[in-house]
Simulated scan of single mutants.
Amino acid sequence: MGYGDIKKLVAYYSYEGNTKLMAEVMAEEIGADLLRLKPKKEIQTKGFSKYLWGGSQIIMNRRPELEPFEVNPSEYDLIIIGTPVWAWTYAPPVGSLFKMVDFNDHSMGIFSCHGGQNGKTLVHMKKALQGNHIIGEIDFFEPLSNNQAVAVEKAQQWARELLDKVVGKK
C-alpha cells in the first residue's frame, strides 16, 4: 500500500503561532489535510495575563465551543494532533476536540510546542486518547524563535516516520 492510499490529517490549536508552524510543516511534508481548531470565542489577552487566563481554564477544566469542522477527523487513517503547552498540559481547545470526536482505534501522533517545560502534556494527551494507537510523540521548544530551521527539519522527519509506520501496518 502506498502513501496515497492513506488518509492523513494534522489537527492543531495554536495561540502564538508555534504549533501552527509545526502543523503546517508536517501537513505539507506528508500531504495531509489541515484542521485548525478555532474556538468560537478566542481569548484576547497578551503578556502575563494570558498565562493567568489559560491556567484558570485548565484548572476549571473548561472546554471552549469550537467552530464547525470542514472535515470529519474520525475518517482518517493517520491523525496528528498538536497543542501548545498551557499549565503543563494540552490547551482547552484540544480537550474540546477530544470530547467531540470518536478517535477509537486510530493511528495517531501527538506533539506539543512550549516555551519552558513540556510538563505532562503528552502523558495527558495519551490518557485522553486511550483506545488508539499512539505511534509517535514529539515536542518542540519555541520553534518560531529557537533555531526554526532545525525544528522544521525535525517536524518533517517525524511526520514521514509516522506515515511510514502506518503504511507498514496496512
Rank of each mutant, 00 (worst) to 15 (best):
K127A: 14
L52E: 06
M1L: 10
M60D: 04
E161H: 02
A87T: 14
G136F: 06
W86Y: 09
Q157C: 02
G95T: 07
G168D: 11
T45D: 03
K127F: 05
E153H: 13
S96V: 10
L144K: 15
E42S: 14
A149C: 00
S56I: 11
W158C: 05
Q157P: 00
Q130R: 13
V150M: 06
G17N: 03
L162V: 08
Y90L: 10
D102A: 05
D77H: 09
Q156D: 00
Y15N: 08
K170C: 01
M26W: 04
D164V: 12
R160I: 14
P92L: 06
M26H: 04
F141K: 13
W53S: 04
A23E: 02
G17K: 08
N61K: 15
A23G: 04
W158D: 04
S145V: 14
F140G: 02
S14G: 07
K120D: 09
P39L: 08
S112M: 12
N61D: 15
T83P: 07
L9C: 11
D102C: 12
L163N: 13
K40P: 01
E67Q: 11
E24N: 14
L78R: 06
W158Q: 05
I135S: 01
C113L: 06
H114K: 08
P39K: 14
L162P: 03
Y90N: 04
P93T: 11
Y76R: 03
G131E: 03
S14A: 11
G116K: 12
T19R: 05
I135L: 09
E65I: 15
I79H: 04
V167T: 12
S14K: 05
K170G: 09
F140L: 08
R63Q: 13
G131F: 07
I134F: 09
P64E: 00
R62V: 11
